[in-house]
Each structure stands twice: as C-alpha cells, then as structure tokens.
C-alpha cells in the first residue's frame, strides 16, 4: 500500500494518468503541472499510463483530460476507478 504517483494535466481534469503501476487500495498522490497535489485512493488496479478517476462521474458526463473533452462515461464511474473502454467512449464518429 505504498503511495503512488499520478499526473493531472489540467486543473479542470476529472481524471489523472498513472505515472507508475497502481494496485487496488493504494493511496495515490495526484500531481498537477503547477506542483499542487491532492491525494485519492485507488479502488482498483490502474497500470502505468492508464487513467484514474479523480471524482465520481455520472453516466453520460464528459471526461476531461488536457482540459479538453476526450469522450464521456458510458456507465457511472466512481473516484479511484480506472477509466478505459469498458466505461468510457469517444463522441466523434
């Protein structure tokens, strides 16, 4: 249960990128570009480079990375869960 790092790329983002492999239950220090940090708890494993939710996200709500919309939640997501194709989808076809 050692503390892991994740990178938030924009202050408005509701997700961060794992800077190392994160295991279920790990405390995660989320580091913003300006050096600010916040701590969350991973509720499931998030491999290096994959996305972790920073807040609860309702089904259909927008996902923000780089301060931009990268898609929406295809099912409800809770803070600390991994975000990927199983619970998120793009909006461009």
């Amino acid at each position: 249960m050692s503390e892991k790092r994740a990178l938030a790329l924009h202050p408005q983002d509701n997700l961060a990128v794992a800077a190392q492999d994160i295991a279920a239950g790990d405390p995660v220090r989320v580091v913003y570009k300006d050096g600010a940090t916040q701590q969350i708890k991973a509720v499931e494993a998030v491999p290096f480079g994959f996305k972790i939710a920073l807040a609860d996200i309702a089904q259909g709500a927008e996902l923000l990375k780089y301060g931009q919309v990268i898609g929406c939640a295809s099912r409800p997501i809770t803070a600390g869960q991994q975000i990927h194709v199983h619970n998120a989808q793009g909006q461009r076809a």
């Binding site: 990128v17 491999p47 480079g49 994959f50 996305k51 990375k65 780089y66 931009q68 919309v69 990268i70 898609g71 975000i83 990927h84 194709v85 998120a88 989808q89 793009g90 909006q91 461009r92």
Partner: peptide, 15 residues
C-alpha cells in the same frame, strides 16, 4: 493504442 491505455480518438488526437 487501446491496449496501452488510450481510450478514445479525441484523447489520442489531443496527445
């Protein structure tokens, strides 16, 4: 891309 953690085309494009 998807296997390596990229979820959507928008996400890929922004990167």
């Amino acid at each position: 891309n998807i296997e390596a953690g990229i979820t959507t085309l928008e996400e890929k494009s922004l990167g």
